[in-house]
Design a protein around this nucleic acid. Structure first.
Lengths: 350, 350
DNA sequence: TTGAAAGCGCTACCAG
DNA sequence: CTGGTAGCGCTTTCAA
């Protein structure tokens, strides 16, 4: 008769399965997981049957501690609700599940301090892989401690992968922000635009800064000797873009033909703000963004942007992590310009 | 002299910390985590210092197995890249981090089979809480096994929370789909609309079906004796909406004044499809959606929708999970109609 | 207030 | 091929 204890029953253990199957735990373990082949097939059957009957599920923590390694990949994102990050998360999660890994996700709220804190506690999980997605931010005092933390993690067998820019000495999936913005500038110049406004995030947000620099470089190369662009600084979010547009309208936009917002959510927020003030995007003022998020084709007019295969970036990050190659590799994600109606031909090219 | 072993160094353990601090592991454990107060403060200091010096981070798996419980909450979503789910994920993750819990995320690809499989393997993590977000799907043969799996999980101390509709015997955060759609129908009727098309997902997707039913009920109550709505069935995604609109156009839409799409991504996809065919949404054909996702205000015309506080749903789910109350509670998330320009006044009300 | 030691569930080594 | 058993890193009695 079973000991009908009154305490909360606990899930069946390998012992239970072994007993049920009439074999030792060792055999049960081998049959279910370990080096499978060294078990008489009869016993494999019995163990499997017992496991199924008891609805046994191995205790991952126990396995982790016994084997000395987990099957976990930890993902740090700036903000899940932002399509930029959720696309990356989708890629990572897809590749991870394919590889039989479990994803744990932490949200850093775009704060470098929070990011550091998260990385620290994440180490407690002893994840196989640690993927950090999110723009590097210059001039914070968390840079050094973060590097130290990650360095140590790597020393003890972990794999670090960054997604964004190559700023820290770890394997990185970089997005070609500079090149994409540069080519966008060329494309706009070809359409006849000469005078620009740029909606950018604060200087220290690297992604924004890289895109700006690329855009400016592209402008110079196009020989558009026009006045330097009007620069409006705001948050790296939809509402940041909205606000930037309002500020531009306040100032007056007679001297600008096109706005380059450093990401699509800003561009979309800006378009809405323009429209709210009776300025028709694409007709009265051209707008271009960056990222080519899904909704770029659903706004009006459809948004010219620079496509960044974010989901693929997530996939590649996982693949990089799983590759045997140990060193701080760099994997470059190409970007390409997608011209849509938000930047119509302004001056027919000669 | 340290044993400079050649194998990959492993992270410091509690033993290392104890040795460094000159106390026993037991004391070190108590100082760092356990019942803190029974340690001489001098020793607490020493242990803390040692831990900091070694950059010690407790091995969560080891703690889990020693304590017999984890600090993990497992979240199952249909698709992270969909704003519906990423909003929920944001809510869950926010509340979890606040409670010091770690979130592990799995993506079911909207497949009930995958969902079941995930739940099964997730049990191996022994999470404290298991949150399943995603529409219930009728008529699958996974329902019974899913219930069994979850039941067992609960028996062994886990908390199950569903987000969507109350279909399974577990605590649920339900979204008032029926009521919201019903009130949307009232609102549209008040604006003068009489003849509708409905873009819905297949019958078995409960969320879609509930919204349809609510909408139809609202129509009846409004006494709009018009012809029954034209129903177009498509996928529950943006491209489903796009396709539904195309099919409606093919068929001809002279007899419909407004489209109700059962979610915003469908509605937005539909608007784009309409526009691609030269049909101006809001002028030639009104469109309304459901969920009030962020981009509803950024499309043109801004989309009439039913607001569902998804992030809050995630928060509430976590809160429910953490509440002592054990039984299958139900927490209702209210929804409310937001009328925007995609459904302008059609017939001035009398 | 402390330390020794017995586990937690599982794997892997070592004998048979 | 199989079973016994020594850990894995940590918590938690139990005595001291």
């Amino acid at each position: 008769m079973e000991d009908a204890s009154k305490t909360a029953p606990s899930p069946p253990t390998l012992h239970d399965v072994a007993r049920e199957a009439g074999v030792s735990v060792a055999t049960a373990s081998r049959a279910l997981n370990g080096s499978a082949r060294n078990v008489r097939s009869e016993n494999v059957r019995r163990v499997r049957a017992a496991a199924a009957k008891l609805n046994y599920e191995p205790h991952l923590s126990a396995q982790a501690i016994a084997k000395g390694s987990t099957r976990t990949v930890a993902l740090v994102v700036g903000d899940v609700a932002d399509p930029y990050f959720s696309a990356i998360a989708a890629g990572v999660s897809g590749a991870a599940e394919e590889a039989g890994l479990i994803v744990t996700m932490a949200v850093a709220d775009r704060s470098p301090d929070r990011e550091l804190e998260i990385v620290r506690t994440l180490r407690g999980q002893r994840p196989r892989v640690l993927i950090i997605a999110g723009s590097r931010v210059d001039g914070t005092d968390t840079r050094a401690p973060l590097i130290e933390e990650l360095e140590e993690y790597r020393t003890t067998g972990g794999r670090v992968i960054m997604i964004s820019q190559r700023d820290l000495p770890f394997a990185t999936v970089t997005v070609d922000n500079h090149g994409g913005a540069r080519r966008l500038a060329h494309a706009l110049a070809r359409l006849g635009y000469r005078r620009y406004a740029i909606f950018r995030a604060p200087e220290r947000v690297r992604t924004s800064t890289d895109r700006c620099a690329g855009f400016l470089a592209g402008l110079r190369e196009s020989g558009a000797g026009g006045a330097p662009p009007v620069v409006v600084e705001a948050e790296f979010t939809r509402s940041g873009g909205h606000e930037a547009a309002r500020r531009l309208l306040e100032r007056g936009y007679e001297d600008v033909e096109a706005v380059f917002a450093v990401n699509d959510v800003m561009a979309i927020g800006a378009m809405t703000a323009l429209r709210e003030s009776g300025v028709v995007p694409g007709r009265d003022l051209a707008v271009a963004g960056f990222d080519d998020i899904g909704s770029a084709v659903d706004v009006v007019p459809p948004l010219t942007s620079v496509a960044v295969p974010l989901k693929e970036a997530g996939l590649r990050a996982m693949r990089l992590a799983l590759s045997p190659d140990d060193r701080a590799a760099e994997e470059r994600i190409a970007t390409h310009v997608v011209v849509r109606e938000s930047t119509p031909v302004l001056r027919p090219s000669g």
